[in-house]
């Protein structure tokens, strides 16, 4: 197993921490992982992205040009990364704020309206966990138990009372994700 993921959106959407939780979950499941953020001035309110790789074997380049999965959370990232998905790969996106929907036909496209759902749950902070849930539904590469372990590791102790809320958000994400386009398995 080797899954190469880019998560991209605005700074403040929890892009980096979502990647971190995924990476920690991989560690809990005894995988090799790497987490490589874009860093620097671009992070001030601008776009943020992180490359996460989960693998059974040693990971080579932590920076990539083509990905198995792109999780896209704003229009800028859609413009930048839609074309970087390997044929047959997965594009998961939040429709909120997207003005040009994905157009490729050689990849699987799924949509999760996480921003909307988060506001329904009255907690904008759960946004990234809803997205994570949606992703895990489509690519169940780590178990829920290990995700919760990963969450525990990446959340400071004083925030551990939020674990159940995050769990609910992940579960919600698995429920509301919907397929927009599927590549026929030929």
């Amino acid at each position: 197993m080797n899954e190469e993921i880019i998560i991209a959106g605005f700074g403040g959407q929890g892009v980096l921490s979502m990647g971190k939780i995924l990476a920690y979950s991989g560690v809990m499941q005894d995988m090799e992982v790497s987490w490589m953020p874009s860093y620097g001035p671009e992070m001030r309110g601008g776009t943020a992205n992180v490359t996460v790789i989960l693998s059974d074997s040693r990971i080579s380049s932590p920076i990539l040009k083509k990905y198995d999965t792109a999780i896209i959370l704003n229009q800028q990232s859609m413009d930048k990364f839609e074309k970087s998905i390997k044929p047959g790969g997965l594009l998961l996106y939040d429709g909120n704020g997207i003005t040009r929907h994905p157009e490729r036909t050689d990849i699987n496209i799924c949509r999760v309206d996480a921003a909307e759902e988060a506001s329904k749950m009255n907690s904008s902070k759960t946004f990234n966990m809803i997205v994570l849930g949606a992703y895990l539904k489509l690519r169940p590469i780590v178990t829920m138990d290990n995700v919760m372990e990963g969450l525990k590791k990446s959340l400071p102790e004083r925030h551990h009372h939020l674990l159940p809320l995050n769990r609910d958000a992940i579960v919600r994400g698995t429920e509301i994700v919907k397929s927009v386009h599927e590549v026929s398995a030929s």
Binding site: E32, V33, S34, W35
Partner: peptide, 10 residues
């Protein structure tokens, strides 16, 4: 460099 410095691994 910053790539290895900012990267997270096991």
């Amino acid at each position: 460099d910053g790539m290895i410095g900012q990267m997270m691994e096991k």
